[in-house]
């Protein structure tokens, strides 16, 4: 399994120059605009895009049939991919937190703003985990080409949800509950994301175990 994670890391590293350049731009922009929003959006999109890209690169190289022929159990092949994604998201979360704290102190926001930036980073991490947890079983079941459409569907669903919540917000009965939910997102999303991530791994593992390549 170590070899598979090294493979994913090497693929990441080979493409890292452009990615790191955008990270640097994100950090510079966050300092000029006194906000980490750009960096947060970029890292979120990048983390999801990169995991999809890894499957596409494997498909292009015809890696999967070879990989299953190696002495690595199928569940560990899936586990390596999930762990690698977790590492990318964790690294992104730490980067957003560090950037948020630095911006908060640079502009005199102190710990209050720093803690808000950290909350945003947790929310980003939770959102990423939920998105990818839904996506990956589809990728293992249908292959990356068909699952690209699922990416679009999974991306649109939260937008619809937010829009429904936004409309519901005007309702006086539901507003207090919605406010409570929204203010609890900083722990609901990471915890929900982590739980869903484990369930997703179990489902993907079961799918890949039976998959014929």
């Amino acid at each position: 399994m170590k070899g598979l994670m090294i493979k994913d890391f090497l693929l990441f590293w080979k493409n890292a120059k452009i990615i790191l350049a955008v990270y640097v731009i994100g950090i510079v922009v966050s300092f000029f605009k006194a906000s980490s929003n750009f960096l947060t959006v970029f890292i979120t999109l990048f983390s999801i895009m990169w995991i999809v890209n890894l499957f596409a690169l494997d498909l292009q190289a015809k890696w999967d049939p070879y990989c299953v022929g190696l002495p690595v159990p199928r569940r560990k092949i899936v586990l390596a991919r999930y762990l690698f994604f977790l590492l990318i998201v964790l690294a992104g979360t730490i980067l957003i937190m560090a950037d948020g704290i630095a911006v908060a102190f640079r502009y005199g926001g102190g710990w209050a703003e720093a803690s808000q930036a950290m909350n945003e980073a947790w929310i980003m991490m939770g959102g990423c985990l939920i998105f990818v947890s839904i996506l990956l079983p589809f990728v293992y079941q249908f292959g990356i080409n068909k699952a690209r459409f699922i990416v679009i569907v999974v991306a649109i669903l939260p937008a619809i949800l937010v829009s429904i919540i936004g409309n519901g917000n005007s309702d006086e009965m539901t507003a207090p509950y919605l406010d409570k939910i929204l203010s609890s997102l900083n722990w609901i999303l990471p915890l929900g994301g982590a739980a869903l991530f484990l369930i997703s791994y179990a489902i993907s593992g079961a799918i890949f175990q039976k998959k014929e390549l």
Binding site: G3, L4, I6, L10, Q60, A61, C67
Partner: peptide, 21 residues
């Protein structure tokens, strides 16, 4: 077909297989 990714060098292949075998 060669199942190693186009972006790799031979030393990358060695690093991957070293982690497998």
């Amino acid at each position: 077909d060669c199942s190693f990714h186009d972006a790799f060098h031979a030393k990358d292949v060695a690093a991957i297989l070293n982690g497998i075998y």
